[in-house]
Design a protein around this nucleic acid. Structure first.
Length: 497
RNA sequence: GGGGCAUUGGUGUAACUGGUUAACACGCCGCCCUCUCAAGGCGGAGAGUAGGAGUUCAAGUCUCCUAUGCCCUACCA
């Protein structure tokens, strides 16, 4: 039977990087096995689900290059079926109606409330399995239901024995039934609950392998119970270690902000392939330690067996803007930018320039050769696509900022530059043709004849032409900026000394 | 309170069924290159594998205890 996996996010906000990684692993597994990767939007939480969130999830997956097969499934569409299944379970005696009035929860410190309840129960010797309605006669139950009394539907968890399954990552899992409460399948307002819905949808979608976050590991036992009650075949499970914040705390939007959102990486100039590659390394270690991988290599090498069990820390600093996200992610992006095929990079640079109003149609036309050469030149020391419009602005526009420190260090420190720069400009204007070699020869010649070090002029020129103290080899810059604009900028720099 | 899972340098990971000085990547430091900054090359610091006990000729690898973290314990997903 061919593999069918799914990614099932709930549309309650942006796409979290942890969820994105789950999607990636599912996708890799499906592609590796020659199976299908399906997408299901778990929008059963009507209050919190939004269309905007669904859109952003779809966008995020597309950005990462994770294409899904078949029709997109919306869980809410299946609610009637889920309800019917729960009711059927009552008929079969595998579930029962619980007429206990619904307890109101404050929702704020729900975790604490649950823990306290459990503590109280264990102190009084109360058994959570002693639900008085579990053994209510069928007739009595039907009668009260017919009379319109509201009820929740609970699964009848067997009294004796234990639930077990083998997790592809975590190994053998066992949990005694005594630790599992008769879980609610259907709320008293007839709204189907998560555990029921996932199972039913996974069955209907023919899911063979469930790959998801480790936070569902203990829930899986409940789901196995539901599969059994339904008489359905239990899929293979593979739980993924979690991605944690630097202090090993849970990574959350409220506490950690935009670093956890996938769209942040798109907006801040990440190359999709680079981020995908980085994400793949969180929890999975490719064979032979080859970390930089093309999409094809990743698919080829992927296996559930090579996934680790310990949670990974997403390392970033909340105070240092240079370490706003994991250093390895930044390195990976730079690595991709400077080594990826130009044909793949060019459209991304174009998009970046367009969005910052630096794009000119001639770059795709008569100046295409110049454009490609320039991008190839400056990509070497860029970290994100944003750098093409930021640090790289001087190559595409005449209005660029002069870095104060650079001006001080390379221009103002030597007063003689006020005269030297215009003279150099004049000298450069005579160079024909104006190339890397000829500009270098001219500058060095000029330095010698005026008795100053070439380095002084080179560094001054760098700041004059680009506004910065760092950048590519200066003669490449001269050639890229061109003779006239170079001369112009040398003179303009002299004015501010 | 109960239960599950995890724990290898700062971070991500490796180390076949226990077997030489615990490996790789990122980060950090230094040198080389050099017009700057990167890249690249070379080298270095940094863990004795959470702590403790045990099994063994031999343990990161097996057992137990403790600690810590995460998750579950909901008519949330």
């Amino acid at each position: 039977m061919s593999v069918r996996v799914r990614f099932a996010p709930s549309p309650t906000g942006y796409l979290h990087i942890g969820a994105a990684r789950s999607a990636l692993f599912n996708w890799l597994y499906a592609r590796h096995m020659g199976g299908k990767f399906l997408l299901r939007i778990e929008d059963t939480d009507l209050q919190r689900s939004t269309d905007e969130s669904t859109r952003s999830i779809l966008e995020g997956l597309a950005w990462l290059g994770l294409d899904y097969d078949e029709e997109l499934v919306f869980q809410s569409d299946n609610a009637p079926k889920h309800r019917a299944a729960a009711l059927r379970l009552i008929e079969e005696g595998r579930a029962y109606r619980d007429f206990t009035p619904k307890a109101e929860r404050t929702d704020s410190n729900i975790k604490q409330e649950i823990a306290e309840r459990a503590r109280a129960h264990s102190a009084t010797g109360f058994d959570h399995r002693s639900n008085p309605f579990r053994d209510l006669s069928k007739e009595e139950s039907d009668r009260r239901a017919a009379a319109g009394e509201p009820f929740a539907v609970r699964l009848k968890v067997p009294r004796e024995g234990s639930s077990r399954f083998t997790d592809a990552v975590y190994g053998e899992q066992e949990r005694d039934f005594s630790e599992i409460e008769d879980l609610v399948l259907l709320r008293s307002d007839s709204h189907p609950l998560y555990n029921l819905s996932v199972v039913l949808d996974d069955i209907e979608m023919g899911i063979t392998d469930v790959i998801r976050g480790q936070d569902h590991l203990t829930n899986t036992h409940k789901q196995v119970l539901i599969y059994d009650a339904l008489g359905a075949r239990v899929p293979r499970f593979a739980h993924l270690p979690l991605i944690l914040a630097p202090n090993k705390a849970k990574l959350s939007k409220r506490k950690h902000g935009e670093v956890v959102s996938l769209t942040t990486y798109r907006d801040r100039g990440f190359v999709p392939a680079a981020f995908r590659n980085f994400l793949a390394l969180l929890g999975w270690s490719p064979p032979e330690g080859k970390e930089i991988m093309t999409k094809e290599e990743m698919i080829e090498n992927f296996s559930l067996e090579a996934i680790g069990r310990a949670n990974a820390v997403f390392n970033f600093s909340e105070t240092d803007p240079r370490q706003w996200t994991d250093a390895k992610a930044i390195w990976m992006n730079a690595e991709y930018i400077r080594t990826m095929p130009m044909q793949d990079l060019l459209p991304m640079v174009r998009a970046e320039l367009e969005s910052s109003k630096l794009w000119r149609d001639e770059y795709a036309d008569e100046k295409q050769a110049w454009f490609e050469k320039t991008v190839d030149l400056i990509r070497q020391r860029f970290f994100t696509l944003k750098d093409f419009s930021g640090q790289g602005r001087a190559y595409f526009a005449d209005d660029f900022e002069m870095d104060e420190a650079a001006v001080k260090k390379n221009l103002k420190k030597e007063p003689r530059l006020k005269e030297l720069l215009p003279a150099l400009a004049e000298r450069m204007e005579k160079v024909e043709p104006f190339t890397v070699e000829t500009s270098e020869a001219a500058l060095r010649d000029f330095a010698e004849s005026t008795g100053v070090k070439a380095g002084l002029l080179i560094n001054a020129a760098r700041t004059a032409l680009t506004g910065q103290s760092v950048g590519p080899s200066m003669f490449d810059v001269f050639a890229a900026i061109g003779r006239e604009r170079s001369a112009q900028r040398l003179r303009r720099a002299a004015e501010i000394i």
